[in-house]
Every structure is written in C-alpha cells, then in structure tokens.
C-alpha cells in the first residue's frame, strides 16, 4: 500500500506528485500552534499534523513542506505541492484558481490588539489603525464590515503583521480565531484577542485546479472530522483556549450585521 495512495475506491483515489510523499504548501513556518519548527524540520502544529494524518490515510510515507507566498497560493501556484494547508477560506475568486475540500475548521475573524486596547463597539474599532495580511479575506472584511477611518496597512505575511502590532505601528488586525488566540497566548501578555466578528469563515484544504485528488482529500477531511481526529489535533496544538475563546470573546457587531 505504501506510496500508492489508494484508500478505498468509494472514497476517491490519491496520486501524489512525488511517490510516497505528501507535499504540502503553506505560507508561514513557524506559525504558532499551526506549524512548529521549520519547513525543513517541522516539529508539529495543527496543520502539520493534519497533513500527516492525510498522508497516513493515503498510505504515504512522509510529509514534505514547501513555503510559498500566500499571495501565490491563492492564485493557484502551489510550487508543485499536492495540497495547500494554510487557513484558506474558499471564495468564488479563489475557486477559479484552486479546488477546495469541505471545511476542516470554521472560525470567526478575530480582532487581535495590543494588551490594554479595548474594542467594545464598532465606533471604537473604526478609530483604530488597522493592518492585514494582503490577499487574505480579512482585507475585504476590514474594509467592508469595519470600515476604518484611517488607511488599511497591508503586510506580506503573518510574522510582519504581528511584529507591526507589537511595535505599535498598527493598533489592530484580524486573524482566524484559533490563530489569534494562539498568538496572544504566546506573546507573553503583549497581545490580546478582544473581539470576534459574527460570521464564521470556513477553512479548507486547497488543491491545484483540475487535481484528480480532490475527492480523496475531501473524503479524508470528512473522515478526520467525523472520527474526532481534527478536534483532538486542535486541542493538542491550539489548546482548550481556542474552544473557550469562542464563547468568551465578545462579538463585535459590524456594519454588515
């Protein structure tokens, strides 16, 4: 079975780009709770372990990680990887360049600020200096739902936006809830997740357009959801905080709600 990528004809067949290897594209390693270690030597994290579960299900021996700019991933350039696992939300625009599985997580856009900054209402939120990672759905969410008074500052990646927040160059950003909670947890009290937006976004695995593997990966994601693997991984790598945060972080009602 090793390397052939076959599970069951009823759940789709998986054919890897490189025999015996599941190659995964992602944009930021390390990413707290999601990708730990380095791309060459990943040591864990929710999305890395999810990739390993997929590889195990497809009978593949190992996972190879490719760091690709987020901007390129959403345009369908996965650098030869079989799949991209990078907190990707399916949108109609992205679906023109990528194929998506069903969601492995549903997460609310969450406001991350420096400790001490309060965001009790939309008006306060609009007065803050906002930053976001370019090409993410959060850019549109901030512009349409929050409508900040100042110019939105765009950043290349997650590390840059977090650094800008810590340095005070921006006052708030939006990230997916589990990531925002994990970053806040590891910031040593410097950052805080203070509000979540009402509409959850689906996060899914992406594949190159026309990939024959979509059905197999889609079936595998559903199986890992149904048997509790994804929930266990989330608890192990992001911790109980994310689950509690969902009910504890207050909702920020925006112009769209």
């Amino acid at each position: 079975m090793g390397g052939c990528g076959s599970i069951s004809g009823s759940a789709g067949e998986f054919t890897p780009a490189r025999p015996g290897v599941l190659t995964v594209a992602t944009s930021a390693v390390p990413s707290p709770g999601f990708w730990e270690g380095t791309a060459a030597h990943p040591t864990g994290g929710f999305e890395y372990e999810l990739a390993r579960e997929l590889a195990r299900r497809f009978g593949l021996d190992r996972v190879a990680v490719k760091v690709v700019h987020f901007h390129r991933i959403v345009r369908g350039h996965l650098g030869g990887a079989d799949v991209a696992i990078d907190l990707l939300t399916p949108t109609s625009e992205r679906e023109e360049a990528l194929e998506f599985t069903g969601p492995y997580l549903k997460s609310a856009p969450t406001v991350l600020v420096r400790a001490g900054t309060e965001v009790p209402d939309l008006k306060t939120a609009q007065e803050l200096r906002w930053g976001a990672i370019q090409s993410t759905t959060f850019v549109e969410t901030i512009e349409d739902a929050i409508v900040p008074e100042g110019e939105l500052v765009l950043f290349d990646g997650q590390q840059e936006v977090v650094a800008a927040l810590e340095a005070g160059r921006i006052e708030a950003t939006l990230l997916d809830l589990p990531l925002a909670v994990a970053i806040a947890e590891r910031s040593g009290g410097k950052l805080e997740a203070v509000a979540q937006l009402p509409d959850k976004e689906a996060l899914a695995v992406a594949l190159p357009q026309g990939s024959p593997n979509r059905q197999a990966v889609d079936s595998a994601i559903r199986a890992l959801t149904a048997d509790g693997t994804i929930e266990d991984l989330l608890e192990e790598w992001v911790g109980d905080e994310a689950a509690n945060a969902e009910s504890e972080i207050p909702l920020l009602h925006t112009t769209l709600h």
Binding site: S10, A11, G12, Q215, D218, S219, R222, A223, A226, D227
Partner: peptide
C-alpha cells in the same frame, strides 16, 4: 452519512 464520515466520495 457515508459521505460525511468519508466512506463515500462525491461520485458515489
């Protein structure tokens, strides 16, 4: 149910 638990794919 078969689809949700990953036993069946979309063609099934």
């Amino acid at each position: 149910v078969g689809f949700n638990i990953g036993l069946f794919d979309q063609s099934v």
